[in-house]
Each structure stands twice: as C-alpha cells, then as structure tokens.
Amino acid sequence: MSAIYRAVIKAADPAVPQALRPFWQHPAGPKTIFFWAPAFKWGLVIAGIGDLQRPAEKLSLSQSGSLAATGLIWSRYSLVIVPKNYSLFAVNVFVAATQCYQFYRAIAYAQSQKVVEKI
C-alpha cells in the first residue's frame, strides 16, 4: 500500500501550485501521516455530534469517558511532539468536547433515574 501512496504523491507533486508548496512540504502536511490521521479522526467528531440527538439512556458512560480522556490526552501530546501538529490538536479538542458533553448527559440521566426511583 505504501508503494501506491508514494506513487500518487510523486505524481501529484509537480501539480501542486507554488502558493500551496509550503503547506505541501510541511512536516505535518498532506505527504505525511501527521496530516491524514487527524483528517480521518474528524469522523469521530461528526459521530459525536450526530449522537447529540440520541436519547441519554442510550449513551455509554464508558465509551464517552474513554473518548473524552483520549481526546484530552492526545490534545496535550499533539503540542509536545515535533513537529507540533495543530490539526491533531484541533480534532482532539473537539473529540474531548463532544464526548465530555455526552458523558455529562449520561451522568445527568443516571442521576435523574435515581431520583425517580426514590419517589
């Protein structure tokens, strides 16, 4: 698979306009995994936003908690590594934010159920 990827990059290289060269050649640019991993991780953000319509009783505390923790940990890591990867930072902040909100919704629902059971 990497041979195909290298061939595609080699074919696209001459077609990149001069104005986009700094972005193209950047250590975290589209020629590296440092670009593509965060790009595909936006799918987790989109899924989290889609889950905002899901009823709170259907949310998983463990899933939301682990995704929120992952988002927070990788947000920090993305600013420590060389090269600094701001696209990785942005996607992980959004993953953490959406999942922290989902975690809050699930806990609030669980607490409301305890109140209802006492009545």
Rank of each mutant, 00 (worst) to 15 (best):
G48I: 08
F23Y: 15
Y77C: 01
A110T: 08
Q53D: 05
A11C: 04
T70G: 11
A11V: 10
F23N: 02
K41P: 00
V93H: 02
T32H: 09
L72E: 04
A47E: 10
A96H: 05
L44W: 12
P22T: 10
I33Q: 10
L61Y: 10
F40R: 01
V95Y: 03
S66K: 10
S64P: 02
K58R: 15
F89K: 01
V82W: 08
V82E: 09
K118P: 00
G48T: 05
A108P: 00
V8W: 13
K84S: 01
Q102A: 09
K114S: 13
V8E: 07
V95Q: 07
Q99Y: 15
T98Y: 04
Q111N: 10
A3R: 13
V80H: 01
L52K: 06
L79P: 02
N92W: 01
Q99F: 14
Y101H: 12
F89Q: 00
A108H: 09
Q102V: 00
Y5A: 13
F35T: 04
F94N: 09
F23C: 03
G43P: 02
I46E: 00
S78T: 02
F34V: 01
A110S: 12
T98M: 09
K118A: 14
S112A: 11
G29F: 10
L59T: 07
T70S: 11
E57G: 13
K118L: 11
G29H: 11
A110F: 02
Y109N: 08
Q113Y: 02
F103K: 03
P27D: 12
A69T: 07
L88S: 00
T32Q: 08
A47M: 06
F103S: 06
P30Y: 11
L20I: 07
P27A: 09
P38T: 04
A19S: 13
C100M: 14
A3N: 14
Q99L: 01
V8Q: 06
A68E: 05
A96C: 14
H26A: 15
A37N: 13
K118H: 06
L59P: 05
P30I: 12
A39P: 01
E117A: 13
A108G: 00
A19I: 14
R76N: 01
I4R: 13
Y5W: 14
R6Q: 15
A68F: 13
P83E: 07
Y109V: 00
T32Y: 06
S2V: 11
A3F: 03
V91H: 01
F89R: 00
S2W: 14
T32D: 04
Y109T: 02
A7M: 04
I107C: 10
A11S: 12
Y77N: 06
I119P: 00
V115K: 14
K58I: 01
A106Y: 09
